[in-house]
Nucleic acid binder design. Structure first.
Lengths: 197, 197
DNA sequence: GGGGGAGCCTATAGATCCTAGGAAAGGTGG
DNA sequence: CCACCTTTCCTAGGATCTATAGGCTCCCCC
């Protein structure tokens, strides 16, 4: 009997594809095994279990998303870079909804696996280096990075959940939101009295 | 044998409590039944199934969150109202993590049930009426509402997923983020050429 | 070509979702 | 006060899923 050529990466990829097609929480060991033409017990040789698989999908998604953002922002600066960054983020979420939702799992990903994945760390670096163009000093820079990530993730997440239904097209609010974000970063407010240092 | 006194609302509440304790995706029909001292088959008389239960938990959470926000913002205006609104949102997410994640499900909630729940509609009204203090005209007002919701949800969501680990306390970034949001709303940028109407 | 390890299998146990049909509790009308 | 009927909850059971244990066979490497 010919071997299916399984691998942790191939199992993860099959799970990711399935997640995009039917939603992350319909990704099951049995379904992934069916898609690979294999019995479900065979998967456990490559992946610790369902939790582990979901964590691996999340890391795959983080890596892919980071790569897209890096490509989109390469050679750009300032406002152009910001828009390219944000659009790449949103487009990834649209293209891979299942993978994207995997990145939201508050689950404790296998730390050893996480240490190997370049995506998350690289994403932080990209964000910081892009925002450095706005001449913010710490700790404002960190706060701005977090604000931007919150806004992008929040928008994409609400959009996917149907939070912007039956009204002005989400696309237009997105464009205007990026305007607003850019303006905000250029005029980041000084600390008010009573604010944390 | 004494009756347990089940009801769709009681089942939903038990599910919500369980979600806060063990996480939304460990909320199972069997677990809810155990908590209520009942066999799992009994639940199906009150709730259509697991999907339906999750939708009901989401609506419960939306209602509760809206009530908290309404109470927090009552009698306040401008910056005070904004901060109270945001803090009530975040505090609800902290107090009820399982319920809060239920609100994120892109799931199609039973439309008939959704029509009865006052929470989601009321939340939109509250947000609009609060932001009206910033003198924005449509469509900017809608865009601002969406930006604010994105930022609040995104921050809370990333925070819960451990996205702000090992660095500046999330609390401080939150306070500064609200400063920034307030400033942004007061100086909402005009449309640039090429922006959507 | 002959180990030996890896890859995939069968078999099995336990948990879950959900349906079908039955028994009993509690209100209602005579 | 009793019979009825609706509602509530139960037992029984099928289908699907996660996960483990152990066996067979393919394929690489010496």
């Amino acid at each position: 009997m010919p071997r299916a050529g399984l691998t942790a990466d191939r199992v993860t990829l099959a799970g990711a594809e399935l997640a995009d097609e039917v939603g992350l929480d319909h990704v099951t060991m049995a379904a992934v095994a069916r898609r690979l033409g294999v019995k479900d017990a065979s998967l456990y040789a490559h992946v610790r279990g369902l939790e582990d698989l979901r964590g691996r999908i999340a890391l795959l998604a983080a890596d892919e998303k980071t790569i897209r953002i890096a490509e989109a922002t390469a050679g750009r600066a300032g406002r152009d870079a910001l828009v390219a960054f944000a659009n790449a983020w949103r487009r990834y979420a649209h293209d891979h909804p299942g993978r994207y939702t995997a990145t939201q799992i508050p689950t404790q990903i296998d730390p050893e696996l996480l240490a190997l994945a370049p995506g998350p760390r690289r994403a932080v670096e990209l964000t910081y280096s892009m925002l450095r163009a706005y001449a913010l000093d710490e700790p404002d820079l960190t706060d701005a990075v977090r604000l931007m990530r919150s806004m992008l993730h929040g928008f994409v997440s609400l959009e996917a959940a149907g939070g912007f239904a039956h009204a002005r097209p989400a696309e237009e609010s997105w464009v205007r939101g990026l305007d607003a974000l850019h303006t905000l970063l250029e005029h980041w407010p000084a600390r008010r009295e009573g604010d944390p240092a």
